[in-house]
């Protein structure tokens, strides 16, 4: 009975990707018929982006292998689990600010950590704090001024905690 249910769930998940790709394809066909240059430009740019992020895939793979190897359930539970307390918040804030790269590069690692006991609140806080990008602070100051940059940085850090707390309530662990 349970096996049957699991098989159905897997089949459903497998169908999802086909539906998603059908939607992408239909949208592109419609856009191509309406404005061919827009569709072609978007296809070319996607190709360029994919080439650019190819090394990131290698990095993602390495991070995934390493996280599978070293981020043991015990380690994750200790630092990012229910009993992590203040330490979990500090790690989520610090790593959120310090870790660079696109968010999708981190999803596999976070997924792995979730399976090992990473708390929702820390994950949400970590992801929100990734908006404080140390490397981009000079650029932000250049465009918007240092006062603006200071204020928004502090607000993002404060709201990242609210974000973590709220999501922790809304997304209950199974």
């Amino acid at each position: 009975m349970t096996e049957n249910k699991n098989a159905k769930t897997i089949a459903k998940k497998g169908r999802g990707i086909y539906i998603f790709w059908s939607v992408v394809l239909i949208i592109y066909i419609v856009v191509f018929l309406v404005d061919g240059s827009l569709a072609m430009k978007s296809l070319q740019e996607t190709g360029i982006t994919l080439l650019k992020i190819l090394p990131i895939f290698v990095l993602i793979f390495v991070i995934m292998v390493l996280s599978n190897l070293f981020l043991t359930p015990e380690l994750v539970k200790k630092h990012f689990g229910k009993e992590a307390g203040l330490r979990g918040w500090i790690y989520a804030l610090l790593f959120g600010v310090l870790v660079a790269g696109p968010p999708y590069a981190l999803y596999p690692m976070l997924k792995n950590m979730r399976e090992h006991g990473l708390e929702i609140k820390y994950m949400a806080t970590f992801l929100y704090n990734r908006n404080v990008k140390l490397a981009l602070i000079p650029a932000m100051i250049y465009y918007f001024g240092w006062q603006y940059t200071m204020v928004i940085t502090v607000l993002v850090i404060i709201f990242s905690v609210f974000n973590g707390l709220i999501l922790n309530v809304l997304v209950k662990d199974n």
Binding site: W21, V31, L38, A39, T49, V65
Partner: peptide, 21 residues
Amino acid sequence: AGGNLRKMIPILVGVLLLATL
């Protein structure tokens, strides 16, 4: 890791196509 990446790539490519458009 290979299995996870294999699941992730088709979605990422589709998402990139939509996002760029």
